[in-house]
Amino acid sequence: MPDPSAPLRLLVIEDEAPIRRFLRIVLEGAGHAMEEAARGREGIERAATGAPSAVVLDLGLPDMDGKAVIAAIREWSDVPIVVVSVRSAEAEIVAALDAGADDYVTKPFAPAELLARLRALVRRRGTDETSPVIRAGDLCLDMAGRMVTLAGRPVRLTRKEFDVLAILVRKSGRLLTHEELLRTVWGPAHLGDSHYLRIAVGHLREKLGDDAAAPRMIFTEPGIGYRFASAE
């Protein structure tokens, strides 16, 4: 697993110079290195040649839509991509996530939040997603035995509850859409059955002692999906 305190190499694809300057102050002030691109095609090239730790991307670029940039990068790379955009409509956020973005932050944003999201995604990228045992703080998932313990105590889950928790924990720090979770756990025939997911998450919170009003583990992005907290 990468050292969460290690400097990152970040690629910012943003056409507005003042925002690029602001991001440089934020990112370099936190000890990270930043490369920048003002256009989508330039950003794709720099992502291919610069091997960044993560990409920070605006959707409103002058030469191509940011979602097309995401799709192009995803053809050959799983580098974490965080969208930073003024577009706050649920449909825009879901479309960017479905295109392959890992997270979405709306402008204006708190610099500390962006930095935390980037650290979480880079840390997750360095984990082995095929590991038979996954740990997240006091939570432990035995994938082979399909068993869960919390602080050493067993937690009894149904098959679907386990599957939902497993994908959330494997991709901790990443915002997963309702559609992605439904497709993965219940199959493509159930993309409209969001109540299945809502009930499963409600049961998980109850069994894990995670308060929806003040969550420690499973966070809700209303109208979009869920995110499992990535321990700092």
Rank of each mutant, 00 (worst) to 15 (best):
151 A>S: 01
165 L>P: 00
137 G>Q: 05
179 E>P: 11
137 G>L: 08
158 T>E: 11
142 D>S: 06
154 P>R: 01
183 R>E: 15
136 A>R: 15
181 L>D: 03
157 L>D: 01
150 L>I: 12
178 H>W: 10
145 G>A: 03
146 R>P: 03
140 C>F: 15
184 T>F: 05
159 R>L: 12
149 T>M: 04
139 L>E: 04
177 T>R: 08
158 T>I: 04
185 V>D: 06
142 D>C: 00
165 L>V: 04
179 E>H: 15
154 P>W: 13
139 L>W: 10
170 R>Q: 10
186 W>H: 09
142 D>L: 01
182 L>P: 07
136 A>P: 05
141 L>Q: 02
148 V>K: 00
179 E>W: 09
144 A>R: 07
162 F>G: 02
183 R>G: 06
158 T>D: 12
176 L>N: 05
168 L>Q: 04
158 T>R: 07
135 R>N: 01
184 T>N: 09
170 R>G: 04
135 R>E: 10
150 L>M: 15
168 L>W: 10
167 I>Q: 07
153 R>L: 14
165 L>S: 11
147 M>V: 15
183 R>H: 09
139 L>S: 04
169 V>H: 02
149 T>H: 00
180 E>V: 11
156 R>Q: 15
134 I>Q: 03
179 E>M: 11
140 C>Q: 13
181 L>W: 06
155 V>S: 04
178 H>A: 04
139 L>K: 09
133 V>R: 05
